[in-house]
Design a protein around this nucleic acid. Structure first.
Lengths: 335, 335
DNA sequence: GTGAAAGCGCTAACAT
DNA sequence: ATGTTAGCGCTTTCAC
């Protein structure tokens, strides 16, 4: 079923069909009708590969993601999708893998090559990887604009991210204001790496606590994978090792929700005995009881900035290398 | 950057480059090396559009989805993605829109046309639409296998779905076993439509309750959109209108989680005063306190069956039209 | 073992 | 207003 079949049926040349398809050039009313009828009767739709190959910009931007079932990623993905659509582009998703998984390097490179071979106009990269791996990615993207969101911060690539330093400080100040003296921090993926991403929120939190003489102990959870069991066992360990703590700051809402629930089941009164604050501001926080206090990221803003950045670069415009968006404290009932 | 550039640099013809690219025909060791070096030096990667156009099967299966940030959909998507990858295919996602949104018909048809024009080999359709709209979709997919998962059940299309009838019965029996006499049911999207999907779980639940003389009142929530506020206000209304109820069966876990939290905040003791049971079996249920009793769908099984069905049909094999997977009761602490 | 040439479905000059 | 023709980047006979 090609443009030729339509042309024959309509009794015109394929050029004419192409013209009505793209509403280009001048066509007579009756030709348009003949062609459109033929298309409808044949159930014709154009072959994108052929269009792309013959030079049409198919306007797609690729998104590299690690997992779909992480509310944090899926929320951002949802927003990116909306914004991209509004800009008359479509997205093509390539799922790589979590940094904690096997072969994540190969998967990541593979995802990027996949998008590149599909000739995407630009890439939004929201996967967490080691700096070396990201360098490789960058090398592959010589002529394809790429922007990083919520992942690593490299000096060579445009990035859009939340002001996590501020986030850490906000969390610390808040816990302090609520009277905490001995807190625990659970840092998320990558905190062992010399990245700015999670580091900033952890470091600034710890620093801020120390500044006020609040004792803080740090635990690490590697990977962003939604491994509920793994999270729970870590929480169990933390609680048993820190029976006298009066506050916890966790690097994401799911983790925090688990923590609230677990502490609750152990008989802790929240927030009286222990204050808990999360990070991200996904809907997860409103699902639990008491509802979670958290640091909210501006997903919509991140999506808009990321899309704007790639699109601008696709258009050859210069853009700033880094866009930092403010986060805000959402005080609910766990603090 | 084309195959020609590589050919020139390697001092061979483009045919040869193509051969090493696809490891086809006989090549001498040194030619392979020359070509691969050239590729590496040039940072070459093949153009998928050209490959596809020249007849190579790019092995992609399209997925029509309504939203990313719904744990139910994202979980299934995640599983589908995994299974598809294992089969050496990749997925292409087209986000349509929720049935409750504006222009969902256009969006849905558009999503399908999008995938079709990208020449996907098959389609997994997990969006909720009216039967007429689905008929249109089917018409478009004349020569592209399509399978429906967790969405509407049409006699003309292969479908993979959970045994929701059994789910409804399980929920009713469970509530009854726990001593409920007066229950409320919140049915999800589409229950107003004459579909089997949500209907089955609602109807069988109601029927089963009535069989045992349990009073049951039904509320409807239209759309699958993650509209937390809307959900909360419905829950508020339900609770205020049914102060004497002793059980609630909600059509998804998020809704149920909201309900647990809300009832809790009103001072209800769960499960003593009121038993709550959800549906789906997403991780959401484990996040709240007390953890949610729910009817679990077999996401992995659904994904496997769906993928197997499209792939078989792509290969021209006959497949059963309907695959129904069992659900199971997960008893946790809200009942 | 390697190359030349045709063709996949479409668009875009360039005619007429 | 409409048709002819030459590619787009790749794969694939068919030659040598």
């Amino acid at each position: 079923m090609t443009i030729m079949d339509v042309a024959e049926r309509a009794g015109v040349s394929k050029t004419t069909v192409s013209r009505v398809l793209n509403r280009r050039g001048s066509l007579s009313e009756k030709t348009i009708k003949k062609v459109e009828d033929a298309m409808r009767e044949l159930g014709y739709y154009p072959n994108e590969h052929a269009r792309a190959l013959s030079g049409v910009n198919t306007k797609v931007i690729g998104v590299v993601i690690s997992a779909f079932n992480n509310p944090f990623h899926s929320e951002l993905l949802q927003q990116i999708h909306k914004v991209v659509r509004q800009c008359d582009y479509s997205i093509m998703i390539a799922a790589a893998s979590d940094i904690s998984e096997e072969k994540h390097r190969e998967r990541t490179i593979g995802a990027v090559e996949y998008l590149l071979s599909k000739q995407v106009n630009g890439i939004i990269f929201m996967n967490h990887v080691e700096p070396e791996v990201f360098e490789e990615v960058l090398k592959k993207c010589q002529s394809t604009p790429i922007v990083t969101v919520l992942s690593i911060l490299s000096s060579n690539a445009p990035a859009v991210f939340s002001d996590d330093r501020q986030g850490g400080i906000l969390a610390a100040k808040h816990l302090r204001a609520k009277g905490c003296k001995k807190v625990v921090h659970v840092s998320g993926a990558l905190s062992g790496f010399p990245y700015r991403y999670v580091d900033e929120r952890s470091y600034s939190f710890i620093q801020e606590c120390e500044k006020y003489g609040i004792s803080v102990r740090n635990y690490e959870y590697s990977g962003l994978k939604m491994d509920i069991d793994k999270m729970q066992s870590l929480i169990g360990r933390i609680v048993s090792e820190n029976l006298d703590m009066d506050g916890i700051f966790l690097s994401n809402d799911i983790f925090a929700a688990q923590c609230v629930t677990y502490a609750h089941s152990l008989g802790y009164k929240i927030p009286d005995d222990i204050k808990i604050i999360g990070y991200d501001g996904t809907y997860i926080g409103t699902l639990i009881d008491p509802p979670l206090s958290t640091i909210q990221q501006d997903f919509r803003g991140l999506a808009e900035a990321a899309v704007k950045t790639v699109l601008d670069r696709i258009d050859g415009k210069e853009t700033g290398m880094k866009v930092m968006l403010p986060v805000k404290l959402i005080e609910r009932k766990t603090t």
